[in-house]
Nucleic acid binder design. Structure first.
Length: 460
RNA sequence: GGCGCCUUGGCCGAGCGGUUAGGCACGGGACUGCAAAUCCCUGUAGGGCGGUUCGACUCCGCCAGGCGCCUCCA
């Protein structure tokens, strides 16, 4: 399997055999507010990746984190007068709920920063011993000049970085403006802090990912992922720390970055008022459609979310569901013809080679659509329908994570009674009565279809 | 200012130096009591200007437009 690597700007072959582990780390969220569609896009990309390698027989060991120790959490929880960890817990739970709604399979581990404080302290100690970090009155800083490869991931010249005006309040104790905090000394009033050899305080933003990934996914990682907005400074810093700490390169064999989600022409931001959060997603959108929409594009490119695009995806998903469901209606006996078998076989091959090629999900989905147009349901016999269904189950359910069903609360036997009643009316040419039944069912999203083999119904 | 990305038919969106991507929508037809669904048919696009080539949407250069990052961010 080949993946595009941000660092080398080339496709890298993972060179794994089925049965082997694929271990990686995906930067998670800071649970200070609702997770949003942008987080969803990244989660879905790695879910597709994980589902695919799992289906191919690899053992995915994907690790992620919750940044529950952070400036924003502290600020927000102070505003709300609740404990920072309580705030984090609220949004962690919402995140899990959202993932469940979207049919995202749980990763191998989700680790909170607060769970690995002793490991973080140990890592900082080692960095200080190796002269990659220094202690100051307001914290411990990583010394960028001690690491010669700094800037290679984000393709920046270190001199440029040092010239920049820092958005963060510069510390008077930094030896170099590019240096970043590994440990922040406790300010008065702060409620979240730990003892350390350098005084009470808490970890800086980047060190957690180094520690969690090394501890739970190993070194080097097969891949390291996250949104493309994290390339600088977060991943650059994380890489510097990790490689300095371990005394070897690379930290990750492949750096994978997902493109940003846009609403209309703009990137989604709370401040722009185009924020689509977890509760809104779960209330308004169909998880299959969200998955299809966000996975039908190349993961590194930006993807735009709009009503129009959503509706297009919704139609596509409905058609897929309909085809999938109609496979169960096939009743003709027979052996599977070689033409059908070979079309399915080659679709499967193309589907897989598309995903092998840097997760080309649009090409993979195109292959599914192509097979569907080549094999109309009414031309299939039972054995053929079963082969097709097996492939679609694998491709769309197992790999793409679509459920392909809509759960209804309507009793099926009741629907069957209604269908029979309506057909009695039709035989008696009482069409307005028949239509009344059809309309009534339609209001419960049950659509009737009169075929040559009788009346069928489907949930829409 | 620095680094990088993008521009494909009404919309979304791939691959590829010379053969139909695919989807959604639209239109025509078949079927139907009417519908719905389904089936059949229909679209030859690739920002602009040059260059390389027998041949470019695909490679190179320039221009135009759009976007991202440059210590909050998935």
């Amino acid at each position: 399997m080949k993946l595009y690597d941000t660092l080398s700007r080339k496709l890298i072959d993972l060179e794994k055999k089925p049965g082997e582990k694929i271990a990686g780390y995906v930067c998670g969220i800071t649970p200070y507010d609702e997770p949003h569609l942008g987080h969803v896009r990244t989660a879905l990309v790695f879910d597709l990746f994980r589902r695919y390698v799992k289906a191919q027989g690899y053992k995915p060991v994907f690790v992620s984190n919750f940044t529950d120790v952070d400036d924003k959490i502290i600020e927000r929880s102070a505003e709300l007068s609740i404990h920072p960890f309580a705030l984090a817990e609220i949004y962690e739970r919402l995140y899990y709920k959202l993932m469940d709604f979207l049919n995202v399979e749980p990763l191998y581990a989700y680790i909170r920063v607060s769970q690995v404080i002793p490991d973080i302290i140990e890592a900082i100690k080692q960095l200080i011993d190796k002269k990659h970090a220094y202690v100051t009155p307001d914290g411990v800083y990583f010394s960028v000049s001690s690491f010669p490869y700094y800037g290679e991931l984000s393709a920046r010249k270190v001199e440029d970085i040092s010239l920049l005006e820092s958005r963060v309040e510069p510390s008077p104790f930094k030896k170099d403006p590019r240096d970043f905090a590994l440990w922040k000394s406790r300010k008065t009033n702060e409620t979240v802090w730990w003892h350390s050899p350098w005084g009470d305080g808490r970890p800086g933003w980047h060190i957690e990912c180094t520690v969690i990934s090394v501890k739970f996914a190993g070194f080097p990682l097969d891949f390291h992922g996250g949104g493309s907005d994290l390339i600088f400074p977060h991943h650059e810093n994380e890489k510097a720390q990790s490689e300095a700490l371990m005394g070897q390169k690379p930290f990750a064999r492949v750096w994978m970055h997902t493109g940003m989600l846009r609403i209309g022409k703009e990137e989604m931001h709370k401040s722009l008022g185009n924020f689509i959060g977890a509760t809104e997603i779960m209330a308004k959108y169909d998880p299959d459609v969200v998955r299809y929409l966000l996975l039908s594009t190349y993961y590194r490119d930006p993807v735009t979310f709009s009503e129009e695009v959503y509706n297009q995806a919704a139609n596509t998903v409905n058609n897929l569901r309909s085809y999938f469901e109609r496979l169960d209606w096939v009743s003709r006996d027979g052996e599977a013809r070689t033409r059908v078998v070979s079309l399915v076989t080659s679709a499967k091959e193309t589907f897989h080679s598309a995903l092998e090629d840097d997760l080309n999900s649009s090409a993979a989905l195109a292959e599914v659509h192509k097979l569907i147009t080549q094999l109309r349901v009414e031309d299939l016999n039972i054995s053929e329908a079963s082969i097709v269904k097996q492939f679609l189950t694998h491709a769309l359910r197992t790999v793409f994570g679509l459920r392909l069903t809509k759960d209804g609360k309507v009793d099926e036997s009741l629907i069957q009674d209604m269908v029979e009643l309506r057909n009695d009316f039709r035989k008696q040419k009482k069409f307005s009565e028949a239509d009344a039944i059809r309309n009534m069912l339609l209001r419960h999203s049950i659509v009737l279809e009169d075929t040559k083999d009788g009346t069928r119904w489907i949930r829409e």
